[in-house]
Amino acid sequence: MSKLSAVIIEDEVPAARLLCAMVMRLRPEWTVTVLPGSVEDAVEWFSENKHPDILFLDIQLADGNSFDFLSAAQPSSVIIFTTAYDQYAVRAFSVNSIDYILKPVDEQRLSEAIAKYEALLDGSRWRPDDYMDTLLDTLQNKEKRYRNRFLISRPDRFWSLQVADIAYFYSENKVSFAVTKTGQEYVIDLSLNKLMEQLDPARFFRANRQMIVGIDSVVHAQPYFNGKITVTVQPPFKAKITVSEEKQTAFKLWLNF
Rank of each mutant, 00 (worst) to 15 (best):
A202P: 00
D200N: 14
V179C: 11
S171K: 03
I166G: 02
S176F: 00
D189I: 06
N208T: 08
V175I: 15
D189Y: 10
L161D: 06
T182S: 15
V187Y: 12
K181P: 00
P201K: 09
R203H: 13
V163H: 03
P201Q: 11
K194H: 12
F177M: 11
S160D: 12
V163E: 03
S160Q: 15
Q198F: 03
T180N: 03
F169C: 04
K194Y: 08
A202V: 07
T182G: 09
S191R: 09
E185A: 15
N173D: 14
L161H: 04
F158R: 14
E172P: 02
L192V: 11
A167N: 07
V187P: 01
I166D: 02
L195N: 10
T182M: 08
E172F: 12
E197C: 10
G183K: 10
S191P: 07
N193S: 12
L195D: 08
L190R: 11
F158Y: 13
A207I: 06
F158G: 05
Y168H: 06
S191F: 11
S160N: 13
K181I: 10
F177E: 09
N173T: 09
L199D: 02
R203L: 13
V179A: 02
E185C: 13
D165G: 05
Y168F: 13
R206I: 07
T180P: 02
A207L: 09
N173G: 08
W159K: 11
S171W: 00
F158E: 13
R209Q: 15
A167P: 04
L190H: 12
L190K: 15
A207R: 03
Y170G: 00
E197V: 07
N173A: 13
E172T: 09
E197A: 09
V175G: 01
E172S: 14
F158Q: 15
L195Q: 07
E197Q: 14
S176T: 15
A202I: 03
V163K: 03
R206G: 00
F169A: 04
N193P: 03
V163M: 05
A202Y: 04
M196E: 11
A207C: 14
L199M: 10
L190Y: 14
D165F: 01
Q162I: 02
Y170T: 01
M196I: 13
I166T: 02
F177G: 08
E197H: 08
F205N: 01
S176G: 10
K174N: 15
L190S: 12
T182Q: 12
L199P: 02
S191Y: 09
V175K: 14
F205W: 04
V163A: 05
Q162T: 07
A167S: 12
N208Q: 13
K181G: 12
K181R: 13
E197P: 02
L190A: 12
F204M: 07
L161C: 09
D200F: 04
N193E: 15
K181Q: 15
S171M: 06
R209T: 10
V179H: 01
W159D: 10
Y186M: 04
L161A: 05
K174C: 11
Y168P: 02
